[in-house]
Simulated scan of single mutants.
Amino acid sequence: MRYRVRHITTYTYGAPVSLCYNMAHLLPRDTHNQRCLNQRVQINPPPVYRNEGEDYFGNQTFYFSIQEAHKKLVIDVLSDFEIFPIDLTMWQQNNTTTCGQLRANLKMPMTPQMRMAKEFLMDSSQIRRSEELKAYAQSTFSDDKPLIKAALEFTHKIFTEFKFDPSTTTVATPLEQVLKQRSGVCQDFAHLAIGCLRSVGIPARYISGYLETLPPPGQEKLVGADASHAWFSIFVPELGWVEFDPTNDVMPNDQHIVTAWGRDYADVTPLQGVIFEGGGSQQLAVSVDVKRLL
């Protein structure tokens, strides 16, 4: 399956900004089943400096600096890529690693992959382990339960017990509040799942990207109506990192497009930076289009 993603980010400032430095996570990365074909980044006003690279997690990044006064900043990213479907049924049926076996292996990791996975057991800037989160997940991840089966059950648990409601949370809402109010958005559900998993000794990481959405039958898809998406993955020794989407109660396959992954949202913020001499109030507008090419 081939896709084209266009992501336009527009900042409008109340007062002219004289200088800005920025780093963006907006370029989809290559994965075991995703390959980037080509990409284009247009920035207005044109930057005096720009450079692409990789961060600690291997995500594609680009840096840029604008040194002329501007009241509007537009970052227009166009990416084409190909996704190859995975036989998820085979994974579910053939993998018998239990939660208890994984926890035991993590105590004495014998492979580089296992040692690297332990990093995703620790607290991060937006996710803290807690007894409350542990209590919510503990029965699902019992020692004798197969790991993928438990993760599927937990994904379904969040999907059925939580309501998607953008008005109830912000990027700073604590996980305990999300758990209490049983509502939020995809970022909250991914963070909640990761916090619970780490609290019961299962390595989990945050994934940002896009999801192909389709309009109702008989209706045309609106331009710019798509949005960024978030989900999580867990480490399974024989398979590597396996993904789960609690917002939609699925294992991502060929309709989920990975941009970046890290410990939590703070590691993969789409755009971050600093501005000088101006800014004042600012307005952010984001337009995302995910188009299937083949």
Score class of each variant (00 low, 15 high):
Asn22Phe: 04
Lys134Cys: 05
Leu37Asn: 07
His32Asn: 11
Asp55Asn: 05
Tyr21Met: 11
Pro109Cys: 08
Tyr49Pro: 05
Thr140Lys: 03
Met90Thr: 13
Tyr63Asn: 09
Met108Asn: 15
Ile66Ser: 00
Arg29His: 05
Asn59Val: 02
Phe62Met: 03
Arg40Tyr: 06
Ala151Phe: 03
Pro45Arg: 12
Tyr21Arg: 11
Ala150Ser: 14
Arg35His: 15
Tyr136Met: 10
Ile148Cys: 02
Tyr11Cys: 00
Met90Leu: 14
Ile43Val: 12
Gln126Asn: 07
Asp30Lys: 07
Phe141Leu: 08
His25Phe: 08
Glu54Gly: 01
Thr98Lys: 06
Phe120Tyr: 15
Pro28Asp: 15
Leu78Arg: 06
Cys36Asp: 02
Met23His: 01
His7Met: 01
Arg103Leu: 08
Leu26Thr: 02
Lys107His: 13
Leu73Met: 10
Tyr21Cys: 03
Phe64Asp: 08
Glu68Pro: 00
Val41Cys: 09
Glu119His: 12
Leu73Gly: 00
Val77Phe: 06
Ser125Ile: 11
Glu119Pro: 00
Phe57Glu: 08
Thr97Gln: 14
Leu27Thr: 15
Leu73Val: 08
Pro85Asn: 09
Phe120Ile: 04
Met23Ser: 05
Glu132Leu: 14
Phe62Arg: 03
Arg35Lys: 15
Cys99Leu: 13
Ser65Phe: 03
Tyr63Arg: 11
His70Asp: 01
Phe62Tyr: 14
Arg115Gly: 00
Glu82Ala: 06
Gln34Tyr: 01
Glu132Gln: 13
Lys107Arg: 15
Ser79Phe: 02
Cys20His: 14
Glu131Tyr: 10
Val48Arg: 10
Gln101Leu: 07
Ser139Asp: 15
Phe64Ala: 07
Pro85His: 09
Lys107Ser: 13
Gln34Gly: 04
Ala15His: 11
Leu73Thr: 05
Glu52Leu: 09
Gln60Ile: 00
Val41Met: 05
Met114Ile: 00
Thr140Tyr: 11
Leu106Tyr: 11
Pro45Glu: 10
Ala150Leu: 08
Thr96Trp: 06
Gly58Leu: 07
Asn59Lys: 04
Leu102Cys: 08
Arg50Leu: 11
Met90His: 15
Thr31Glu: 12
Asp144Pro: 02
Ile75Trp: 02
Leu78Lys: 06
Gln67Cys: 05
Asn105His: 10
Ala69Ile: 01
Ile127Gln: 06
Phe120Ser: 03
Asp30Glu: 15
His32Thr: 10
Leu106Glu: 12
Ala137Asp: 02
Ile43Asn: 05
Lys107Ile: 13
Val48Glu: 12
Thr12Ile: 12
Thr9Lys: 02
Asp144Ala: 12
Asp87Lys: 05
Asn94Gly: 00
Leu133Asn: 09
Pro109Ser: 07
Ala150Thr: 09
Arg115Asn: 03
Thr12Asp: 10
Phe141Gln: 07
Asn105Val: 00
Ala135Pro: 04
Asp123Pro: 12
Arg29Lys: 13
Tyr136Asp: 07
Arg115Phe: 03
Asp144Cys: 03
Pro45Gln: 13
Lys118Gly: 04
Ala137Cys: 02
Leu88Gln: 14
Ala15Cys: 00
